[in-house]
Design a protein around this nucleic acid. Sequence first.
DNA 1: TATTGTTATACTCTATAACTATA
DNA 2: TATAGTTATAGAGTATAACAATA
Lengths: 166, 166
Amino acid sequence: MREKGDMDDEPTENLPAVSHPLASHIGFLLRRVQLAVFSDFQTRTATFEITPSEYAILQVLHASPRMQQNRLAEIIGVKPANCVVLINGLEKRHLLIRRAYSKKLPQGRALALSLTMEGKEFLKKMNVRVLEHQKFLVDLLGVRAHEELRDHLTSLLDQADRGLLG
Amino acid sequence: MREKGDMDDEPTENLPAVSHPLASHIGFLLRRVQLAVFSDFQTRTATFEITPSEYAILQVLHASPRMQQNRLAEIIGVKPANCVVLINGLEKRHLLIRRAYSKKLPQGRALALSLTMEGKEFLKKMNVRVLEHQKFLVDLLGVRAHEELRDHLTSLLDQADRGLLG
DNA sequence: TATTGTTATACTCTATAACTATA
DNA sequence: TATAGTTATAGAGTATAACAATA
């Protein structure tokens, strides 16, 4: 039965976003949540004037020094061409160095990337804020849910890297 | 103890991406997974020539006809100014219509957005592919993990909307 | 006059192709 | 000559401010 107010040009009542059909779309949720999480990251690390992608570079090079650019680009999910610009900026700030390999494995024009001492100290200071950011997410979700979220995202990412997705 | 091969200019061995410190960064995982999931969505719906954001608009308007643009923009997480362009394109394709409210609630220049019959049929056909996309994700993760992922993302999104994040 | 929608614009991110440099 | 890196450029997505239209 229709109520008296149910007229054709009446606007839809305001509803919380969660009640919409998009609420069950993983892709939609991923996009919204990613923007929010990045925003929190950026806010907490604003004084370091660094983007999430640049942070990813420093973090990967800290764990795996003397890495090639192409391999680094693959890991952080950025095209080699775009990675160049990021690395240029970090090199100008003396946070990392490019060195030619003198021998061994790589072919062609391969360069080895490593953090400078300055870069390591920078990363150490920045990680204080990044850990606060991560702790904030854990506190919001709870330890268990945070682990589940991380594991499920990792599972999807692994399968995407194996070509089962995308 | 250091092995004989442990020289200073030797490159780091190749490792699966998952072994990197970024593997526990929710923000990093969200970005990578979102790109992969969107890519699968785009591939499966390529023939409809529609972006995820445009799909979100159609889906929301189907569930909530006569919605205002500002409210729609808020729900799909796009600035009103950018939403205009998306709506223009969908209107030119006759998938939705803009109508002025003749009376009642809204103030100012408010317009009511609704799907056309063509828009509803378009969405119905497209949803066949979108459901395949969603089923693919469920199959990859398993029903239980998919639900957990959705719930955790929703939880984070709700708290972000309440200003606790970002 | 407050609210809603629109335009214009700029900035970032991402994608592609063509080009350079090195083992 | 195959591999790695670089340049240039184009296209999305996003953000902001100024402006126009309507109750």
